[in-house]
Design a protein around this nucleic acid. Structure first.
Lengths: 199, 199
DNA sequence: CAGATTTTTGACCATATGGTCAAATCGTAC
DNA sequence: GTACGATTTGACCATATGGTCAAAAATCTG
């Protein structure tokens, strides 16, 4: 019997060309809408309209509106993680934290829509697991300290939280003032972070 | 002719006892609901229900739902500003930034609902004027530097942004882990901030 | 071209929201 | 107690939302 095949059950056969195209388009359109008008104003109807199709068609490709948003969010985050991850792995252990901060800020500064999308969904759909916010950087800080053979200083979780929050603020400022020099800000933050880590 | 007197036009006569009481109650209830269930889930009906009255009654005391939320938000922010402001004024110029950070973190750590309320409305209703986020602290940093007669170091706006973002992150962590030591975090942040300011 | 399959449409639901309003209730000054 | 304003109710709107579905249109396959 022909299974009730919705296009939204991925994971089975490779998706058709149209399928892949539409999904990408919908994800793109959703990112833009969320970035420009906020989560609340991004309805199914608007997504459909922006893509030039109907609500029904959108729901043919995704199981629900939340699924669309989740996919868009996942795309943004995957891109971020891949980029920053590569930069970190290319750096020596004691410079990894700096690479992390530098690349993260640069990545988001270059992609305002991605940045807005993240802050937007972070609130509404509840962020990632609490730990995930600071663990990665905290780990890098620990390894960097080790690489320099230093005695433990301030709590790594706190340092990572401070840096993470600072990054958010710097990006937020950039979103409102495109002239704001995020590279300089990144270097200032890195200096502060390093002097606190290797105290 | 008896003007269409809605209770919501404040600023004229002093409000009646019931009026003042209801307004306070509605503000309180709204803060709690927003903090516990988020902005999206805080409808007029729920506010009314939580207060034990009807939607109509709520709208008798406030012109609109947004007005209720705005009043709640204003109350939270006024409290914050008053508390932090007092702490800052009581400190000598070169320790004002530390007092600012310390009191801000303590204030919000002691009032989780207020903290959640701020982050919740910050996104939805658009935050305060962009500048307002960092100007106050930047000013304090400038005066502190002056008080110690030091040459200009890193951009004050950036330092203030970093500190502000760090505060948000520290508070955010506290909301998810009530055991998190915000006082220690505050001191770490202050140390970093001072060494960067008086470099 | 014919038949099957994928994709899209557009009408239709159920539900929730913020808001309005006349009528009822309450509280109080006379 | 009665009259009058303040307060509250509850029914009612208009609107928007996410979602369903049968039928139509595109697209592919032989």
């Amino acid at each position: 019997m022909t299974e009730r095949r919705t296009a939204s059950d991925a994971g089975n056969r490779p998706l058709s060309f149209i399928e892949r195209t539409r999904r990408d388009q919908l994800i793109q359109v959703t990112i833009d809408l969320m970035a420009e008008h906020g989560h609340a104003a991004t309805s199914l109807a608007r997504i459909a309209q922006a893509a030039g199709i109907t609500k029904g068609a959108v729901l043919y490709h995704f199981a629900s509106k939340d699924a669309v948003v989740a996919a868009a969010r996942a795309h943004v985050i995957d891109t971020l993680v891949a980029d920053v991850g590569a930069a970190v792995e290319a750096a020596p252990a004691d410079q990894a934290p700096a690479a992390y901060v530098r690349r993260m800020i640069a990545h988001l500064a270059e992609r305002p829509h991605h940045a807005r999308m993240i802050t937007e969904t972070l609130i509404h759909d509840g962020g990632p697991a609490p730990e995930a916010r600071w663990k990665p950087l905290a780990t890098l800080l620990g390894q960097a300290r080790e690489a320099r053979g230093l005695a433990p200083g301030p709590d790594l979780r706190t340092l990572a939280l401070i840096a993470g929050g600072a990054i958010d603020a710097i990006i937020g400022e950039r979103l409102q003032d495109p002239a704001y020099d995020t590279e300089a800000a990144a270097e200032t933050l890195i200096t502060m972070l390093e002097s606190a880590t290797f105290a």
